[in-house]
């Protein structure tokens, strides 16, 4: 059990470091790093605070604390992925509207150019 919790601690610290480094290099925007940082922190706390992990294990009706931790980690990352899907969908909708608007403006600009040339 201890080894499993240690592995989770190392994983959480690595995740924290990776996300912070990505934010520092501007590879991830701050608002999009919040979910990952929160998830890594929760995992770090649970893997180090055995009393809390045991209470969660009992609450989940499980007997194995590492398994409960893995389940919790899975649930957290599912929530993070869901949030990312929301963002991607919003970005895609905005992107499509933007592409259509650019194409329409270009079309109207070309027509305007043609009219101007015809007049002059």
């Amino acid at each position: 059990m201890d080894r499993m919790l240690n592995v989770m601690t190392v994983f959480s610290i690595l995740l924290l470091g990776l996300v912070l480094a990505s934010v520092r290099r501007a590879h991830i925007r701050v608002e999009y790093s919040v979910s990952w940082l929160a998830a890594a922190l929760v995992l770090l706390i649970l893997s180090r605070w055995q009393g809390l992990l045991n209470r969660i294990t009992t609450w989940l009706g499980m007997s194995d604390a590492p398994l409960a931790l893995l389940m919790t980690a899975g649930a957290i990352f599912l929530i993070v992925l869901y949030r990312l899907s929301l963002m991607i969908s919003h970005l895609k909708d905005s992107n499509i509207a933007l592409v259509q608007r650019v194409a329409i403006l270009e079309f109207r600009l070309e027509r305007l150019d043609e009219k101007t040339k015809a007049v002059s």
């Binding site: 592409v99 259509q100 194409a103 329409i104």
Partner: peptide, 25 residues
């Protein structure tokens, strides 16, 4: 024909909707 050129590939729905938008405007 007149041509409305999309700057990148949107797929059929996005392509048709661009035409509907322009036609409506």
């Amino acid at each position: 024909a007149q041509v409305l050129s999309l700057p990148y590939h949107l797929g059929l729905g996005g392509c048709v909707q661009a035409g509907y938008r322009l036609a409506f405007e």
